[in-house]
Design a protein around this nucleic acid. Structure first.
Lengths: 353, 353
DNA sequence: ATGAAAGCGCTAACAG
DNA sequence: CTGTTAGCGCTTTCAT
């Protein structure tokens, strides 16, 4: 059976290009040409095709187009992490929304896929290799992510968001300078104004295998050492997650062990930990920032959810989404970007420090 | 040129089924059969194919498979709403994660697409008609969403999450009974224990074109009327968003106008509004719940972010994601579901009411 | 300006 | 058990 409309339309519900061509009385090649904006189509056939398209509600098949063009016109944002960590990360939605907007502007379609657990990673890896999308934005929450391997071999446009570990990633990354941002913040905490100095800081860390966490911790140790030359052990709380409860629990442990009495500032690796700390200090009857200052990181909604509100660092996540989008699309079009793009940060001084 | 490997492998970087077949010394049909788990393939050819696949890193092309099978094996979660409203909705990520997990279990791939603004809606509508996915989960934030029209005409598996407006949607929906959940909550607020009654409630509403909002408001009016037969106007604050600041602003307006003095309970349409209210009451020196009780809705993280923590209703969003996933997948497999699935809710009594 | 024909990479019915 | 053949719906030369 040959590819004419008569032989096909019989029991189909959805019109294809042959239906349109038949209705317009032209060859399907002409329909394709016209719909793809090629120059040489006469006014009158154009009109007939328009009418046929309208009448049949014709929309080209995505898979057929992708196959023929060898392009899907899709950019995939891959989110990898345990569902719990992911659902609580306030930055993800921001990146999704801003990257999505930018990609749509450029005439592409962004889709988000979540890789949860081992089977998730497997599926995603297959997906990548199957040519599902033309480019990928990676929001990877863990170091040494196996998904990255999929990009090692093949030459697929990709960009990665905020790994602190830029060394061996197979694609450009956009990040903030966690080290200098945290250092600036800490200097503010230690010396908020000319009349005021804090000299006994403690640190609440997040999981050290997550982007940014090691840099922030190191910045704490180095900056405090530089500024204070402390001759005592800095209290540092190491944790497996970024939860509010975890920040609160760290404070309570220090309180129970008496350590808290020797502390006048708590630097936290992010805002949710800081929010938990502020709340626990409140419960323990300590005043923030008079008795103990607290700082966060991210400028997420958690930072303004407490009383007092939390002094923190803004990472401009909206900008990050856009920059990520720009980089993949450029790469898809053959334009390379610097291996690492550093986005600016901003100290946000509120009442907690 | 015919479809043999020799004629094709020349400049390609990615192996296709012909490459594998040539390497294994069989026809490409046999490779396809084996890879798709058909019974009739001999041990020895199987082994040769395995070897060839391994050697070439062969992964079938997604678009070619979709075209040939007329199935993409993809379920799309469509999120429609202004980016701001979306990025702040704590439920979205939960639904994404749980639905994703469930869909992956069933052997499908879930992708999330965001429709932002008019062009977004247009793109999505095309996407749906182009057969991009086999089924759709709609997380639609507004009434009368134009995206729904795409499903009216064509027979495409879809399910919609939490429209309060079940009447004229072209697909099954899963929701909670906002009316009875809110009524129960309000009865608790008005009469938390035998010795205690509150008799001057006020209400802070969210945008009434959003799912659930009208039901909750109506439930407030009806329940309060039933319980108290009030002979005065109930203070009700109508708002365009669900933000914390908005909840705070409502309280402040009532305070400035003196209305607050006659109020002993504030029922809020969701947790973030309630969190803002609690914080503002704190700033105004009112004690929660002694002077004024406050309640929320959703049991989101905002509900535990304040002091005191907020009494609210849990909607079991994790369950919702799974149920949505089940329904689309069933529908894809030809199994229909009830037009409306009502999920249970749970009163969560904390300290604020 | 338009039609004919050859793919894009894969699946599936049909022979054998 | 395996090869042959005909599509899936569209794009894209190459003629005319």
């Amino acid at each position: 059976m040959d590819n004419n409309a008569a032989g096909r339309t019989a029991d189909k519900t959805k019109a294809n290009i042959y239906d349109v061509a038949a209705l317009a009385g032209v060859s399907y090649a002409t329909v394709s040409r016209y719909l793809n904006g090629h120059p040489n189509v006469s006014k009158s056939t154009a009109a007939r095709i328009d009418a046929a398209v309208a009448k049949t509600n014709y929309i080209p098949s995505a898979s057929a187009q992708s196959l023929a063009r060898q392009r899907s016109h899709i950019v995939a944002l891959i989110i990898h992490g345990e569902s719990e960590a992911v659902t609580r990360d306030p930055n993800i939605m921001t990146i999704m929304a801003t990257a999505n907007k930018r990609i749509a502007q450029e005439g592409w379609q962004m889709v988000t896929v979540m890789a949860d657990g081992d089977t998730g990673v497997n599926n995603i890896t297959r997906m990548i290799a199957s040519g599902f999308a033309d480019g990928y934005i990676l929001f990877t929450l863990e170091k040494g992510d196996p998904i990255l391997a999929a990009f090692d071999k093949r030459q697929i446009p990709a960009v990665i968001s905020g790994t602190g570990f830029k060394d061996n990633v197979p694609c450009p990354s956009v990040d903030v300078d966690n080290t200098s941002a945290m250092s600036d913040l800490i200097r503010h905490v230690l010396h908020p104004d000319p009349d005021h100095r804090r000299i006994h800081p403690a640190y609440i860390s997040g999981p050290l295998n997550m982007p940014g966490a090691p840099e922030r911790l190191t910045a704490f140790i180095n900056t405090v050492t530089e500024e204070l030359h402390p001759n005592y052990n800095l209290p540092i709380s190491y944790n497996d997650d970024w939860l509010r409860e975890t920040g609160a629990a760290a404070v309570r442990r220090w309180h129970d062990s008496g350590v808290l009495d020797g502390v006048d500032a708590i630097v936290c690796a992010n805002d949710t930990l800081a929010a938990g700390a502020v709340e626990e200090l409140h419960r323990l009857g300590r005043h923030v920032p008079e008795d103990i200052a607290v700082s966060g990181f991210d400028n997420s909604s958690a930072a303004t959810s407490t009383m007092p509100q939390i002094t923190t660092v803004d990472q401009h996540m909206e900008m990050r989404g856009e920059v990520l989008a720009d980089i993949v699309i450029k790469k898809i079009n053959g334009i390379d970007s610097p291996r690492t793009v550093m986005l600016p940060t901003e100290l946000v001084v509120r009442q907690s420090a």
